[in-house]
Design a protein around this nucleic acid. Structure first.
Lengths: 206, 206, 206, 206
DNA sequence: AATTAATCGAGACGGTACGTCCCGTCTTCCT
DNA sequence: AGGAAGACGGGACGTACCGTCTCGATTAATT
C-alpha cells in the first residue's frame, strides 16, 4: 500500500503514461537533442506544469521512462553454471540495448553528465540493480571453482557492461550475438589458452 | 603549409589559446553544465564571435581543447610482448583518464549524444586513433602465438576501453593501478585457469 | 428572507468571513501585487474552490471585502447647511480613505481596469452610492440659494472625490484635515473673492 | 550628446519604435488585460528578449510608450491671465485624455498599484511635470491678485487633475468641453457668488 | 604612407527552452 | 450541498544561452 491517496483529485494515470511514452519516444526517435519538456508536453498532449508536478528534472523523467520499459527484461536466474548465467545475462543486456532502450540509455548517461541527480537515479535504479544481480552469479562461480579464485566480479562486469555502453555512446551497433561473443572472450581471456607453449614468446626456438 | 595567411590581420594565437584553456578548465571544474559559449568567452576574456569564427559548435571546441591536452600522452610503443604492450597502453589511458582529461572526455561524450558532429570528431580524432594504434599490438601478439588465435582485437578493446569510459561516465574513480588489474583480467580471462579440476560442478557423477 | 437554505450543508459563515478578512488584509498589507486567490485561500485557511464557489473573480471578492469594512462609514445626514453637509461628507471619505480602506480601494480600481465587472461592481455598490447620497445635499443647497444656481453637483463631486482617489492612486497621504481644506477650497473657488478688485489683471490702466 | 555608442551593434530604432507602438496600441485597444510582454512582442514582430533588454518591467514600457505619444501635447504658455492659463491647461489635458492616451494612462495607473517603480516613473516623468508647469501659472495669478491669496495651488490641481483621472479610471467620458466647465467651476467655487444671502452660514453675525 | 582585408571586442537581434506562479476548472472524498 | 484537497490544462513571466548580425578599432601585407 503506497500511502492511500487520502483526498484531492487523483493523479491521472493516462497523463502519466502519455508523458512517459512521449518522453521515451522522443528520446528514441530524436535523441537527446529532441528531448525537451516542451516537446514531451506537446507530444503527450499534456500541460507543461503537469510534467513539472511529478518530475523535478528532465533527467529523472527520462530515467523513469527508461525503467518503465526495461523493468525485469533481463534474465538473472541462477543455474549451476556461472558461465551460462553470465553469458545469458550479458546476452540479455545486449539484446535489450540493441533496440530503442540503448538509445534512451545513452541519452540518460549524457544528461547524467550535466545533472548529478539524473546520474544517481540511473545508477541506483538501473545500473546497480543490474550489477547487484550479476555479482552473485559470478561469486557462485568462483566458489564452485568454475571461475578464477582471484576474480573480482566488479572488474569483470565493468568490462562487460562498459563494452556495451561504449558502443551505445559511440552509436555503434550492439546485438545479442555480439554480446555473446563478448562474454565468451571475457571468460576465456585473451591469452593463448594452451600451454603457452614451452616458451611463450620470442622468435627463438631451437 | 597551412594556407599562408594571405593578408589581413592574422589570427590571434593568444586568443586561441585562452579559449582552449578556458574551455578545458570549465569542463574540468564545472562539468558539462558549466560549459557554454558565453562562459568560455567570459572565462577567456574573449568576444563570443571570436569563438564562433573558429569553432562551429561547442562540441568541436571541447574536442579540440581535449586533444590539445592529451596529444600523444599514451605510450603505444611495440615491444616483443603483447602482454606488456597492452597493459602499458591501458595503464596509460587509465592514468590519463584518472585526471581532468577523464572529466572532459565524459562531457564530450555527453555532448556527442546531442550533436553527431561532435561524436564523429571525438571518434575520429581520439578514439579511433587509440584503437588503430592498439590493434597492431594485439595482432602482433596473435601472430606471435602469444594471444589466442581467435582473438578479435576490437572486442578486447571494447571491453578494455569501455570499462574505463563506463567509470568516467558514472563518475567513479579510475586509476592507473586499476587499469593494470583490468588488463590482467582481460588477458587471463575469468575462467579458472587449471583444468577446471576433476569436476568443478554438477551433481557430481556416480 | 434570503432564499432559505433548501437542503444540503449550509454555507459556512466562518469560511466566508475568513475569506473576506484574508482578502482585505492581503490588499491592505501587500497591495494588489500580493492579492491572488491562492494567497487568500492560504491566508484564510480555506480551499481555493470555496472561494470560487462564491466569488466569480478576485475583483468582486475584493470589492465585497472592501464593502464589508466600509458599509455606512460616512455620514450623509442632511442638515440645513449644504456647506456643512458637503464638508462633513468629504471629511468622512477622507478619514476613511486615510487608512487601509484607501489602499484597498486603489487596488480595486486597479483590478477594475482589467476586469470590467469589477469596475462595475465598485461603481454600483460603492461609488454611485456615495454620489447618490451626496447629490441631494448639494441640490438642496442650490435650492436654498446657498450654492451657486448653475452648480452641477456631479462636476463638483468629480473634483472632490477625484482629488481623493488621485492621492490614493499616487500613494500620497490623505487625511481628514486635508479633505476639509479641499472642501473649503471647492466651495470658495480659486478666484479672489473680493470684488476682483477694481482691476483684476492686466497691466491695469488708469 | 548622449554618450556616444562606443562599440557593438547599435540599437535598432525600428525595433524600439515597433515595441512602443505595439505597447501603446495594445493598451489602447485591449486595455490592461491585453497588455503582456508576449503580446507586445508578437504585435511588434520582435523577440521577447529584445523587450526585456530595454525595459525591466512592463509598467515602465507602458509609461515610455505613453510619454512618446504625449510629449508636450499640452500648452502651458503663461499669459497675464491665470484664469485663461489654467483653463487652457486643463482643457488641454482633457482633450488629450479624451482619446487613447486616457485609456493608456488608466492602465499605467493600474499597473502602478502593483509595481511601485511604474508608479514612480509615471509620477516623475508625467504627473509631476504637469504639476510643476501648472503651479507657476497659478502662483502668478495669486501674486497678481487674480486668484485667492490663500490658494494652495496643489490643492486646486489635485481637484482638477483628480477629476479627470477619476473619470478615466471609471471609464466615463472625458472631453475638452467638460474640462473647461470643470475649470470654470473650480475657479468660481460652489458657493453662491452674490452676497451669500443674508446669512449663508452659522453664527451669522450680530 | 595609403589602401585593403581579415581579426577582434562589443553588444543588439530573433529565437528556444527553462522552471515558476497563478489562473480557473475538474474530480474525489469527507462532513 | 458544502468544504478540503489537490491534479489538470493553460498563459505569462523573467532568465540563460543560442547562433547571427552589425558596428568600430586593430593589425599586417599589399600597394
Amino acid at each position: 500500500m503506497t500511502a492511500r491517496p487520502k483526498s484531492g483529485r487523483p493523479r491521472s494515470e493516462s497523463a502519466k503514461q502519455s508523458i512517459l511514452d512521449g518522453a521515451y519516444q522522443l528520446l528514441d526517435e530524436g535523441g537527446y537533442a529532441a528531448f525537451s519538456i516542451d516537446a514531451v508536453a506537446g507530444c503527450a498532449g499534456v500541460a507543461r506544469t503537469t510534467i513539472y508536478r511529478w518530475w523535478p528534472t528532465k533527467g529523472l523523467l527520462a530515467t523513469e521512462a527508461f525503467l518503465a520499459r526495461v523493468q525485469a527484461n533481463v534474465d538473472f536466474q541462477a543455474t549451476d553454471s556461472a558461465i551460462h548465467d553470465f553469458t545469458r545475462m550479458l546476452a540479455g543486456v545486449g539484446a535489450l540495448m540493441a533496440g530503442s532502450a540503448g538509445r534512451v540509455a545513452a541519452s540518460i548517461l549524457a544528461e547524467g553528465q550535466r545533472d548529478p541527480e539524473t546520474l544517481e537515479a540511473f545508477k541506483t535504479s538501473y545500473h546497480q540493480v543490474l550489477r547487484s544481480r550479476s555479482v552473485p552469479l559470478l561469486k557462485a562461480g568462483v566458489a564452485r571453482g568454475e571461475l578464477a579464485p582471484d576474480l573480482d566480479p566488479d572488474l569483470l562486469l565493468d568490462a562487460a557492461i562498459g563494452a556495451i555502453y561504449l558502443n551505445l555512446l559511440l552509436k555503434q551497433p550492439v546485438s545479442e550475438q555480439w554480446a555473446r561473443q563478448l562474454a565468451e572472450r571475457l571468460l576465456k581471456g585473451a591469452l593463448a589458452s594452451s600451454p603457452p607453449s614451452p616458451d611463450t614468446s620470442r622468435k627463438t626456438r631451437p
